[in-house]
Simulated scan of single mutants.
Amino acid sequence: MQVEVNLFTVNKRFPLTISRGTTAQTTNVWVRILQDGLEGWGEASPFGVGNHSQSTDTIKNCLEQLAPVLQAFSPLQRQEVEQVLIKQQVPSSVRAALDIAMHDWLGKRVGLPLWQIWGLDRHVIVPTSVTIGINSPAGARARARDWLQFTDVRLFKVKLGSPEGIDADRKMLLAVQEEAKNQEFFVDANGGWSLSDAIEMCNWLANLEIKYVEQPLPRGQEKSLAELKKESSLPIFVDESCFTSADIPHLANYVDGINIKLMKSGGLTEAMRMVHTARAYGLQVMFGCYSDSTLANTAAAQLAPLADYLDLDSHLNLIDDPFTGALIQQGRVLPNDLPGLGVQHSASTT
């Protein structure tokens, strides 16, 4: 198979601030694999967690170096390709882009969408949350109003872990709840709390009927999750602490759920393994995203029937997304009936 690599830059309608910083623009990588007159598409988006970083340049350079190696393989050889990529210690976002593209190619080859190949039921897909980044109380209220006017919101994900401390977190969350009455909420601290702050906030949040708290402690402090679990009145999910299925057994006794992201997992193949591993340990599952376009989020949506929660909203906040794919209906991100991912590029649809 031939591999083509292109960069594209997307801009956020509203910059997103989390405990680690603010993002307004990202340059992502569009991967196209070609064989037998068919194209499979994938996406890699840059991300960073602590001292773990996968930049656009790193992704692009790695893909270009891999292209000659992959010529010896067919998109039907996903298992063999995966082992080659793991052996070469390829970044997870690179593996994700290639794995998504090979799945897309397969779907186009057989003329079926991926969700249908897997026998999944679109009717059970839950609504996606939409994200409110760290902001002033007034700014957060305005962002909530924007979301409510823009789409059919069913669930808000509020980013906490403010550098100004948990008092600022409290004020911001209360402002959003006042603005968005009758909505459901969960919070994501992105590892921005200490253990003592996490215990205090989890119990305070439980009184506000928050559904769960995501990544309360920084990556690297997983041992403290045991104490937090004993003290918390809220379910605990992990994101930055859980990249692949191999991480789940070490976390299972201390958390209630995991956040699967294709860029962390290395693609749909490993995401499916993570779902089954999590279920075997009695954990709940959510799918999340980074600064992904419609391409990557539509890929994740193919597995959406397997999730308890979805946070696939990054493409909804883009003003120049070059792709179309999954549909938004009643607050749900639904994969369409087109073969493969069902994604099209704007240049080919005009």
Rank of each mutant, 00 (worst) to 15 (best):
E179N: 05
G139V: 03
S346K: 15
T151C: 14
F156M: 03
R32T: 15
L251R: 01
S233R: 13
Q83K: 15
A206Y: 10
A300V: 06
R78Y: 10
M172R: 12
S162F: 07
S53D: 06
K229Q: 14
P235N: 09
G191A: 11
H345P: 02
G340N: 01
V31C: 10
A300R: 02
D311P: 01
W41P: 00
T22M: 07
C62K: 11
N51Q: 12
Q183G: 00
G139E: 05
A180R: 07
L112S: 13
N61P: 00
C202N: 14
Y212P: 02
Q83Y: 12
V343K: 04
S162T: 03
I117Y: 05
S194P: 01
T27P: 03
Q25S: 14
D36V: 01
D292S: 13
S45N: 13
C242D: 07
A246F: 13
M263R: 06
P322A: 09
P113R: 05
S45G: 13
S196P: 02
Q177Y: 04
W115C: 06
K261L: 09
D256S: 12
G107C: 12
Q88K: 15
V176C: 09
Y290H: 15
Q302V: 08
G192W: 10
N6V: 00
Q330N: 15
L268E: 00
F73V: 03
N253T: 13
R219F: 09
K230W: 00
N51G: 00
A300M: 13
T294D: 02
N253Y: 11
P305V: 11
V285K: 03
N190M: 08
L341C: 12
E209I: 00
A299F: 05
R109D: 07
L225R: 02
P305L: 08
V255F: 03
M263E: 10
G48I: 01
G342W: 01
V130T: 07
I210T: 04
T151Q: 08
L148W: 01
G192K: 07
N317K: 10
T324L: 07
A138G: 08
A144E: 02
G42W: 06
F185T: 02
